[in-house]
Amino acid sequence: MLESESALIELKDVEMEYDNGTKAIRGISLRIDPGEFVFLVGPSGSGKSTIIKLLTGEVEPNAGRVRVNGFSTRNISERQIPLMRRTLGVIFQDFRLIEKKTVYDNLAFVMRAVGASAKESRKRIPYVLELVGLEKKAYSYPDELSGGEQQRVAIARALVNNPATIIADEPTGNLDPERSLELMDLLVKINKLGTTMVVVTHEKDLVDHFGKRVVTIDSGRVVNDSVGGYVGGRIHV
């Protein structure tokens, strides 16, 4: 689908201030190449979620440039924002599933939202559910599933429109350590199939366990960008 050259994420000298005057991002430059797996870590209030909102186009930078899979938020038009979002799959700490729809319908819903037919859904959904290990739960409702299972539905939903990049904001925040590890394993597996992965997390143990690239944010700045572990690893910057 996308050219590998355009399928990347780049922030250049980005600054961002909320309407109430909070300076959340104070000059961040960051490049994530296609196929990478990146952990975004840092203390509470450091600006991690704001970076994600910049990538999804929910907020705009006050200075600098944000590029996402071939779209630039500098000159993006109202009409292009939906197209940019189709290149992203987003996962939240609180799952955000539609309670009155089955697992299958939750996925069909987002496929239809971007124009897929019922026939395409019937082909794609079983494949994605199998990938996250929920093929037997297609007709369950979210409140009939455990937290870990619900988050895997959310991953399936993020995957189902075949995005270039998956962005997860503390996906394991509501899960116990064992489920968290399983979930992270799943994200690594999906990354190996070619999807770029950006994961915000607080969990030092998990980050250390996987030995991936770790970008540490503090007070709206990148204070460390290294492979291996939480701050302690090899320092690039």
């Binding site: 999804t56 109202e78 009409r79 924002i81 939906p82 197209l83 940019m84 979002r85 189709r86 992203l88 799959g89 987003v90 955000r96 539609i98 819903f109 987002v110 939202a113 971007v114 124009g115 939903r157 429109n161």
Partner: peptide, 17 residues
């Protein structure tokens, strides 16, 4: 509102919503 938020998040057009 949740459904609308999800549709927007996955890139549904305003017209569709």
């Amino acid at each position: 509102r949740e459904e609308i938020a999800i549709m927007r998040m996955v890139g549904a057009t305003n017209g569709f919503i």
